[in-house]
């Protein structure tokens, strides 16, 4: 029994980690895409913004697939209830990600301003919508959703847009835009870099206020702090989030852009772990009946499957991190917009 709980706890933490890595990685390219109409005034600037995310977004998105796949493999009941309950928002997220991918690929395939303008508009919306949806979805998960013991969802799409859900949506959106602005500043030079720095500076106090507001609303709208009362050491998580956000600002002031990006990653990881560890040991909190919550006890796969998956993860995740790290290094130099767009390369 202890062995089983240990395995399930490990997978719960890995589950949180996968979402955190996804938010850190896809977060910056979603943020850059959302900034497109605000910073990309000239064609060369827009090209540079596409190029700043070009070699990375596809590999980043796989972390979402992995998070989904791990939910399915390690916690099949959570996967089943979660995705059928959040049917409409999840499909909206997937359609947005389809349009995001297609906008990268199609934009420069026809040399016509109207065609490009169309895909720029699509690109903006297809990046903005996931930023908001992810926040709304996770806030509602923190708060609990109306599922019964049969796993049947009794809510509706508008119900997800409650005060706390909307706060989560706005918070995640600014968190990713801020993250994307730092990335863009690190990846560009000249006017665009100045504008990206301006955007990061502009967003920072907003993100700080939203973080504090979200932590406060969490006390009034969720029971996440019960875990923190039980184990006060966990309060390190929101503290780490705050530290990361402050660190990002300090490093940005000092002109250390990559350091700022790293601190901002710490911030996002802290926020994710703050919420998900507050849910522990529940993967889905039922707002109808505590019995209906999906937990690591009633939602997990068998120990055999969890062990096999742990072996696969222990071998493969470091390998993935190594080659993705290598790719980040390979394409770490600044983009100038003229040179490295998809069209110029192909």
């Amino acid at each position: 029994m202890l062995d089983m709980l240990l395995l399930e706890t490990i997978w719960f933490v890995l589950w949180a980690l996968l979402w955190a890595v996804y938010f850190v990685l896809d977060g910056f390219d979603l943020g850059v895409g959302t900034l497109l109409p605000f910073l990309g005034r000239k064609e060369s600037e827009r090209k540079a913004m596409y190029a700043a995310a070009g070699p990375f977004w596809d590999g980043n998105e796989v972390w979402l697939i992995s998070a989904g796949g791990v939910t399915f493999a390690a916690f099949p009941n959570a996967y089943a209830v979660l995705f059928s309950a959040l049917y409409a928002p999840l499909l909206m997220l997937l359609f947005a990600l389809i349009f995001r991918a297609v906008s990268f690929e199609f934009r420069d395939k026809v040399e016509h301003p109207a065609w490009r303008g169309l895909w720029d508009g699509v690109h903006f919306l297809a990046n903005l919508v996931p930023c908001i949806l992810l926040g709304v979805a996770f806030a509602n998960l923190f708060m609990g959703i109306p599922v019964d013991v049969q796993g049947v969802y009794h809510g509706s799409l508008p119900e997800l847009l409650n005060v706390y859900g909307l706060a989560g949506g706005v918070f995640f959106c600014f968190m990713f835009v801020h993250h994307g602005a730092i990335w863009l500043a690190a990846k560009t030079r000249g006017d665009l870099q100045v504008k990206a720095l301006g955007a990061a500076t502009f967003c920072w106090p907003i993100v700080l206020v939203l973080l504090v507001a979200f932590l406060g609303l969490t006390a009034s709208h969720t029971d996440l702090y019960d875990n923190y009362k039980a184990s006060p050491t966990l309060l390190a998580l929101p503290a780490i989030a705050l530290l990361g956000l402050v660190g990002a600002r300090t490093a940005l002031r000092a002109g250390k852009l990559w350091t700022a990006f790293a601190w901002d990653a710490v911030f996002i990881i802290g926020v994710t772990f703050f919420g998900v560890m507050g849910m522990f040991p529940r993967l889905i909190i039922s707002s109808l009946d505590p019995i209906a919550s999906v937990t690591i006890l009633n939602g997990a796969s068998t120990p055999l499957t969890l062990k096999i998956m742990l072996g696969v993860a222990a071998v493969m995740v470091p390998i993935v991190l190594i080659y993705q790290g290598w790719v980040y290094r390979l394409f770490s130099d600044a983009v100038d917009g003229e040179e490295k767009s998809g069209a110029a390369h192909y």
């Binding site: 493999a73 390690a74 996967y79 696969v312």
Partner: peptide, 13 residues
Amino acid sequence: GDIFGSLLAIEAT
């Protein structure tokens, strides 16, 4: 999910 899910997760990783 105990079987099918792990195959999809391995595919991704």
